[in-house]
Simulated assay, not measured.
Amino acid sequence: MREITAEIQSWPIAGTFTISRGAKTEARVVVASVSDHGQTGYGECVPYARYGENEKDVMAAIKAQQPALADGMNREDLQRVMPRGAARNALDCALWDLETKLTGRPAWERAGLAAPRALTTAYTLSLAAPEEMHEAAKAEAHRPILKLKLGQGGDEDVARVEAVRAGAPNAALIVDANEGWKPEDVLPLAHEFARLGVSLIEQPVPAREDEVLRGIESPVPLCADESAHGLEGMRRLVGLYDFINVKLDKTGGLTEALSVIRCAKLRKLRVMVGCMVSTSLAMAPAMLAAQQADYVDLDGPLLLAQDREPSLRYEGSLVYPPESKLWG
């Protein structure tokens, strides 16, 4: 009989991770495991208060699926009985991992994908004063892609991007406002950032206000994050954004993430695959989705003081596919 366990884990962040909504010094994750016939599959998620999630509720939602899993519920059933979100992500990824162990076939093969390859990930710089972000950029100037967390828009954000560009003149830059800007700031800031060679602007305005983006001609492509979750609502994003940021915690696992990417490409939306600050166990399934992405933002373990073992292999900004002892 299949059995579920779930536990909360805390992983210290190297320093402080700051975005426009606040700061944290640890990554709090929930790890689900599903055991069957002497094998155990694992999946990791990050409950996110922005979406009304907390660790207690996520743990309860995972454990509540014990009777259904014992009765033979599979990943396809899981999509119907659980809403998308962190809890379903942990269970979905645990089931993928369990399937690979029971069948001896890697997850990429079961998903009908080509064998995964190493990818270049963006590296995130936390929101800080311009001079601090300049120093952080200098320290990471060797990385090909830097992602900057920005604030509430205006001159201060322009100063931050100018400081980072001066510190890392050759890096591609992605800026992430995390819904922090006013609608009227989008085009003026986009023109400033085009001047500074920014490649992508992520979620400039609150998701509930993003209809103001429809039809505007931004000189820098716009990417939906908080506005883009799963398959529902994908059609509405066309004409608002050029990219969507696919995160497994939002789609509720790898199963729907792969469907979202296929749907995005059919709708001519380009794809970033991103993450929350979490360990290699959360990044491993996302690496399969990221094989089809235009931008990869799977630097979560690089922001931690210590990753779990076994872990993904990072060489600078190059991240390698997971080995089976980690996941999949």
Rank of each mutant, 00 (worst) to 15 (best):
L269Q: 09
L281C: 11
C263W: 05
Y241A: 14
V260C: 13
K250L: 04
V260T: 14
S259Y: 03
V271L: 05
K265A: 02
C263N: 11
M283V: 12
A282Q: 12
N245L: 06
T255Q: 06
R270G: 03
L254M: 10
N245Q: 09
M283G: 04
A282L: 11
M283D: 08
A284E: 07
V277P: 02
A264M: 09
T279C: 11
A257Y: 01
L281D: 08
L281P: 00
V260K: 00
I244E: 01
N245T: 13
G274V: 12
T255S: 13
T279H: 09
D249T: 15
E256W: 11
V273H: 07
T251R: 11
M276K: 07
D242F: 03
G239Y: 04
V271C: 05
K265E: 04
M276D: 05
K250I: 10
I261D: 00
A264L: 08
S280Y: 14
D242I: 04
C263H: 10
G274Y: 04
L266H: 11
S259I: 01
K265N: 05
K265H: 14
R270F: 00
G239N: 07
R270C: 01
F243E: 09
R262F: 01
D249W: 02
F243W: 08
G252P: 11
T255Y: 10
M272R: 14
